[in-house]
């Protein structure tokens, strides 16, 4: 199934994703149970992340989520603060070698749970209602993965945070009542605005800029959902956006694909940090 076929489905996008799986009723039940457990695992990682200031192995991150969470909400925008804090909580837990749910990767693990669970907590929506949107998110990721490897080493950060933001955007759209067309539009809008992001982690560690990037792109996903729910459409159809992203991925030199040799990783300060760490170990 293509994203455009999904968009043309008359109803909830998650229904179509489940139909395509050709599952027995027993298997469908199992899928729902497994996804429910994924939400529990996501919640646990958020919880642990918000309650810890333990630095990561490198000492570059570890306290951002809790610091933001405990800070005064000067923007008077509790949703923004909550979602950003949740995203960083997951990714800092990840950087500490804690247990997380890859969604679709570990480096991009914060975006989807922050957008979906963060919004649900803000609006006091029960976890049961998050299962179908989560299945939709998985389906979107599955379709994207048929065109490109979802990995920073294959297509840069856009191939990780792009799909995660697109998945989150679609999930949030469905959670708030959007139909299949709107959900796919949200995904296309999110994806077309992540194209070009390079994977340039300092020292090759999934920490800088990864932790804060997840906070930014969880909000990006919610913005995309807001636009799609209002009826805004992506001029370029979703499948073509995925194709464009894949071709940009192929154009990226190895230095910008998770090798820690270009971009932010190639700055004087980043090099200094890496040297200092090498001396310590």
């Amino acid at each position: 199934m293509t994203l455009n076929e999904l968009a043309n489905y008359n109803g909830k996008a998650s229904e179509k994703i489940i139909k395509e799986e050709c599952l027995s009723s027993e298997e469908t039940k199992q899928l729902f149970n497994n996804m429910k457990q994924r939400i529990v695992d996501m919640r646990n990682s958020i919880e642990r992340g918000l309650n810890s200031k333990q630095p990561s192995i490198t000492g570059m991150v570890g306290w951002n989520a809790q610091t933001l969470w405990e800070n005064e909400d000067k923007l008077a925008s509790p949703l923004l603060k909550r979602v950003q804090a949740y995203a960083m909580a997951v990714n800092e837990e990840n950087a500490r070698m804690g247990k997380i749910v890859a969604a679709p990767t570990a480096g991009s693990a914060g975006t989807l749970p922050a957008a979906l669970i963060g919004l649900a907590d803000h609006l006091k929506i029960r976890d049961e209602e998050l299962i179908a949107p989560l299945i939709l998110a998985a389906g979107i990721g599955q379709i994207i993965s048929k065109t490109m490897f979802i990995a920073g080493s294959s297509g840069g950060c856009q191939a990780e945070i792009g799909p995660s933001a697109a998945m989150a955007a679609a999930a949030v759209t469905e959670l708030l009542g959007g139909n299949a067309k709107q959900a796919v539009n949200a995904a296309a809008l999110a994806l077309s605005n992540t194209i070009g992001l390079v994977c340039d982690p300092v020292g090759g560690y999934v920490e800088v800029p990864c932790v804060t990037r997840n906070a930014f792109y969880s909000i990006h996903a919610i913005s995309s959902a807001q636009m799609a729910l209002a009826g805004l459409e992506s001029v370029i159809p979703a499948d073509e956006v995925v194709g464009a992203m894949a071709s940009v991925g192929r154009l990226l030199p190895p230095e910008l694909r998770e090798t820690g040799e270009g971009g932010i990783a190639d700055t004087a300060t980043a090099r200094m940090i890496v040297l200092k760490m090498a001396k310590k170990t």
Binding site: I17, E21, L31, N34, M35, R38, D41, E93, N94, A95, R96, M97, G98, K99, I100, V101, A102, A103, P104, T105, A106, G107, A109, L112, L134, I135, A137, A138, G139, G141, Q142, S145, A151, G152, S153, M167, Y205, V206, E207
Partner: peptide, 21 residues
């Protein structure tokens, strides 16, 4: 790739390809 492979694995960080894989 199955749906639970996209939302998953549940894993010890920090990288799905470099750690879990």
């Amino acid at each position: 790739m199955g749906l639970l492979d996209v939302i998953g694995p549940v894993m010890i960080g920090p990288s799905s390809s470099h750690t879990a894989g």
